[in-house]
Design a binder for these strands. Structure first.
Lengths: 222, 222, 222, 222
DNA sequence: AATGAATGAGCGTTCATTCAT
DNA sequence: GATGAATGAACGCTCATTCAT
């Protein structure tokens, strides 16, 4: 069963479309998608051309339009595809955590792991999710929300477990977590990338949980 | 006295240039810059055209090339100008803080304040600083670094003052802070913007300092 | 079989290219080339626009860039194509001459014939080969040289045969011949063109060989 | 008395014009003309800009339009100015020759001398007089004619003197002479220019008069 | 007279998209 | 389905010319 299949549901209505979910044809759809992300990562969306993508994918320019409505649609399909794929993995990782803190650690670790593994995806994600203008693109916006929902659940669980403070503005907590992970990835992407991104997970979780501040002994005496 | 004046020092050498720092002429440089940022914020850099910018600025297309080498140069000049301007204000705000925690609070508050005040700038900053591909652009990269340097100083001071833990990976701390502030701004930019961004400063600082976790009583017995 | 075919060998490496040597597609390359030369002849290179050429060739503007790297390349390809074509004919004509004088006559006659037949080419040649500034363009420079080489050979043969004086500065002889033929063509191009250019060949050869001067009887007594 | 004065008669009717024949103002007219020719020689007419000329002349762009109707007019004025100047010298040189052959020699020598002395002029002349398209420009066409008239006179005189054959097609003779001199200059312009152009005069005259052919001894016996 | 900032028409070139094969 | 030649709208940029100062 091909992971890309679900995408067809999006566009089927709008266009002639090569259905044949399990055939070889489908490889082409995949290949174009991966090629596009590679090119986007290298040059940025607007500086990438259909020709470059076609070349990278080893197909003719026109072939791309059999699978994608237009250039934008390539990005959209990429996001909806990767989002589903990656989030399934995120959820899986979270479920394996015995408690909230471990769930958070697993989430962040998986997040870093996936982005380290697929650098092209990482670049496109970082770039496009900060493209305020294009953010109107429904898929992208939805993705952010999904991530934050996962975080919400974890935090709430932690509060019930007593490991996370109750007096927290949840919206802010989510931004702190997503923001810092994003920035860790961003820094890595801009660096020479000769360090292991995943190793940042534990210290980062520690920092998020414990904060920068010293534990005040005075707390106790009060 | 016009805040844009200093930019002239950048290009004076390269091009015939309408200097006359305090005259009316100079307004045009300013006007184009503001117009450009407005258009960039609305459409994104690549989807903005010189014609749109010229129209927004109320000048002819060709006039833009009297002040800017090319389209890219508009963005570059904007960054070098705003960076200097904003960072001066950041530093000023930081200096007014009596201790590290207050300095951090002042920095974040000022950061949110400046970005709330000038939404166009905020959008362009958020977008362009995450543009991995174009990041090669020197000015932009430098800006991030400057911010992180300020944060470093504050954290180190806090460590000496005893308000911030010593056992911290400084690089990570910086990313936590910049990342969470960025994400707070980003969320605001994507929202309806009917809440006050600055009011997020105090809770955010609290969160950064205290962390998510409950103070562990067990700490004491150790 | 199409005479333009060989040009493909020049650019094949540099660009995606519609090969299919004997197909209909190829006509387009030819058509653009002829259209361009016509427009260049009418307006001059710099005052010709891609749009005019495209219109003359009956193709879209963009189509031109499928066959030519840029505007300059049209001229370059034209020269390398015509040079080869015309010089083959020159050499052929020269070879048919039984002796040096006849070879020279054949060369000049063929030269005038070819230029009379294709007036657009003649105009572009006359114009561009005298464009000192642009002459750096390799192809054009080389062409002049080739012509002079042919002349050299003829003159040397004539010297061996005894029909041409030995005490001649060869470089100057070449310039005399090329210059006078050029000027004959030039004059024709500027005239109403209602006379036959080829008919100038015999008198011109006579003039070149015999010179303006009267045979001096005193020669004999010396 | 300034050599440029006569030009004013051409444009006086068409435009506001800085008359003041003997004043300093006139220097500016001269300076612009010389600057323009220098720039034209370096880059070619169409690739030269008014700004470059202005800069070279040390005046403002706008100033040029006080003296010249438009860019074309600069070239036109240059030609009418130089033509007069140079032809006066040609005629003078010709007059000094005691007989036709010497007159021709003087003409060619002076021709080479003038063009060697003012290389910029030489380049512009060679380029523009072969610009078939632009040749419509009245001044340029007239110039060629004047040259040929001088040659005609000389040749006719030579025929009367008995030094030049009578059975000559005069039109062709003129082209032979002008063409070969042109080509000698052209070659020099394209070369490294480290040889003396004037030294070509005598051998060239010899060649033109005597021709390439051996004096046939048989002539005599017939 | 002289300036040079401002103009905007015009051009070369690119590239997403189409469609005949 | 697959191709890739062809299209032409659109854009960045240049530069001759004008005109307020």
């Amino acid at each position: 069963m091909n992971e890309y299949s679900f995408i067809f549901q999006i566009n089927r209505a709008t266009r002639r479309f090569p259905i044949r979910i399990k055939g070889k044809t489908n490889d082409k759809h995949h290949r174009i998608l991966e090629a596009a992300v590679k090119v986007f990562a290298e040059k940025g969306f607007f500086q990438s051309t259909i020709s470059q993508i076609a070349k990278e994918a080893g197909v003719a320019d026109g072939t791309i339009y059999l699978y994608f409505k237009n250039k934008d649609d390539i990005l959209t399909q990429f996001f909806s595809y990767k989002t589903k794929l990656v989030f399934d993995r995120f959820k899986e990782a979270v479920e394996e955590g015995p408690n909230a803190i471990e769930k958070l650690r697993n989430l962040i670790r998986k997040h870093l792991e996936e982005f380290q593994r697929d650098r092209n995806m990482a670049v496109v994600y970082q770039t496009e999710t900060h493209q305020i203008t294009r953010m109107a693109e429904y898929q992208i916006k939805k993705m952010s929300k999904k991530y934050l929902d996962i975080v919400s659940e974890i935090v709430e669980q932690g509060q019930q477990e007593g490991s996370i403070r109750r007096s927290l503005y949840l919206g802010l907590v989510k931004r702190l977590i997503l923001g810092s992970v994003d920035e860790v990835i961003n820094t890595w992407l801009h660096s020479k990338k000769n360090y292991d991104l995943i190793s940042m997970a534990d210290p980062l979780v520690e920092l998020i949980i414990e904060g920068l501040g010293k534990k005040r002994e005075t707390d106790h005496s009060s």
